[in-house]
Amino acid sequence: MKIAITSSGNSPDSVMDSRFGRCMYFVFYDTKTGAMEFVPNPNKDAIEGAGPASVQLVASKGVDKVISGEFGNKVKALFDSLKVQLIIPENPSLTINQIVDKFVKQQK
């Protein structure tokens, strides 16, 4: 299973980015291999439509779950239709490593 997490930096110790469409990085975590890929978000400075453009990027990677601080209406509707689960952690200041431990490894 593949999971996307929005990140404020490009290391596992970075804090989650609370924005979805305009986050700094997307982290793609493969639960099978434990591989973590950091992709800089090309849409973070988009004038309009950063949310849908980021859905395009994330969904084309074939993820099953997305973890971020908030999702806009357009983004939520798209992910709902694609049957991708959205998760908003209660504590927004967790690091990527902590999120993987808490939300991903636990669910195995």
């Binding site: 988009a46 309009e48 439509g49 950063a50 849908p52 453009a53 074939g62 694609l82």
Partner: peptide, 11 residues
Amino acid sequence: EYNAIVCLEEQ
């Protein structure tokens, strides 16, 4: 130009 279209080729 406005990110109004999302197209997922594989899906």
